[in-house]
């Protein structure tokens, strides 16, 4: 039902392929199921030196599967370069907001980040105490962390490749006046003033993008440094700085994630966008009311001076 529109689009192309959204979703389920299984199996203790009774260890995926790190980055670059983006257009009162690649990038990033945050918190960092105490449970958390790293690197490299090749960085990056527009947007949500006309991406979304780049970029760079220590003998000072910055970056990611989940899932007016992140589509009416600039681009109609995000249109207490 939900994906019938996607299926119709695929049929018109003359193929029998599954819609990208479904195949990406299935792919993610398979990857994470295998990842959880592998992480669990690897964290079981085994006797690794017969000469010493009681000398046990577990398999650390960061060491034994370190080759998966460059493979996931290369896979992400390949997927980002090979994927064809679907253009947003109005079809039967519906607008394609998030295509198959957006679905893949967003949900792989989201699940991987959640997994990394949860396992990172369990392992303890900065002022947060460690919540796992036995080598097996520590191993399981570290191995799950590895699964999250592999998927996150795939997702980020896929996103960056697509962004650079399509020249879409400008769409996401904030412009002058976005801060004022974001304030006016949320003021209008609580009934104060009128919201400015928004484009495809809200001003507040664009403002949050550099924060994501900073926090995720910091975590990835320092994380890769820490992973390198499994292959090369790095200086202690470098590892110390990398660990501290990794922890600070993780804290920033947690704050960003909390804000993102609140504004994109919990507040009632974000529900259509959350739904489109699953189904791909928002209604034409929603776009006309909440993203007038984008609607003007899609419909080919000029943006009227009176166009603005409708005051209180998505408020929970509005009719």
């Amino acid at each position: 039902m939900v994906y019938s529109r996607d299926l119709e689009r695929e049929k018109t192309k003359g193929g029998l392929k599954l819609p990208k959204r479904i195949s990406s979703g299935l792919g993610l389920v398979v990857v994470f199921t295998l990842g959880f299984y592998l992480a669990y199996k690897a964290s079981q203790l085994y006797q690794y030196q017969a000469v010493f009774a009681g000398s046990y260890t577990y398999q650390l995926l960061f060491t034994s599967f370190s080759w998966l790190i460059p493979v996931s980055i290369l896979g992400g670059i390949f997927a980002g370069a090979a994927s064809e983006r679907e253009q947003s257009q109005i079809i039967d009162g519906q607008v394609l907001r998030h295509d198959g690649l957006a679905f893949l990038i967003h949900w792989s990033h989201a699940i991987a980040t959640l997994l990394l945050v949860v396992t990172g918190v369990y392992l303890g960092f900065l002022f947060i105490p460690r919540l796992v105490f036995t080598p097996q449970s520590v191993g399981y958390m570290l191995n799950l962390h590895f699964v999250g790293v592999v998927v996150l690197l795939f997702s980020v490299s896929c996103h960056l490749t697509d962004l650079l090749l399509a020249g879409k960085l400008k769409e996401h990056w904030p412009e002058a006046g976005d801060f004022k527009a974001a304030l006016a947007h949320y003021a209008a949500k609580v009934g104060i003033g009128t919201a400015p006309p928004e484009g495809k991406y809200l001003a507040s979304e664009k403002l949050s993008y550099p924060l994501w780049v900073l926090s995720v970029g910091l975590v990835i760079l320092t994380g890769l440094t820490k992973i390198s220590a499994h292959v090369w003998n790095l200086p202690g000072g470098l590892m110390e700085v990398a660990t501290l910055l990794h922890d600070i970056g993780a804290l920033l990611v947690i704050l960003n994630l909390a804000a993102h989940i609140f504004f994109s899932s919990l507040v009632p007016w974000s529900r259509p966008l959350l739904r489109s992140m699953l189904t791909g589509y928002v209604s034409e009416e929603y776009v006309r009311k909440n993203h007038p600039k984008w609607y003007a681009e899609l419909s080919g109609q000029p943006l009227r001076k009176t166009d603005s995000t409708e005051k209180g249109s998505q408020l929970p207490f509005s009719s």
Binding site: S55, Y56, L60, P135, K226
Partner: peptide
Amino acid sequence: ERKCIGCMQCVEACPQTPSRVIWNF
């Protein structure tokens, strides 16, 4: 200590009981 990633493999690997490698909580 600056290079330790906290995997506790050394704690488990120590053949003595209790392990002579201590975890700094």
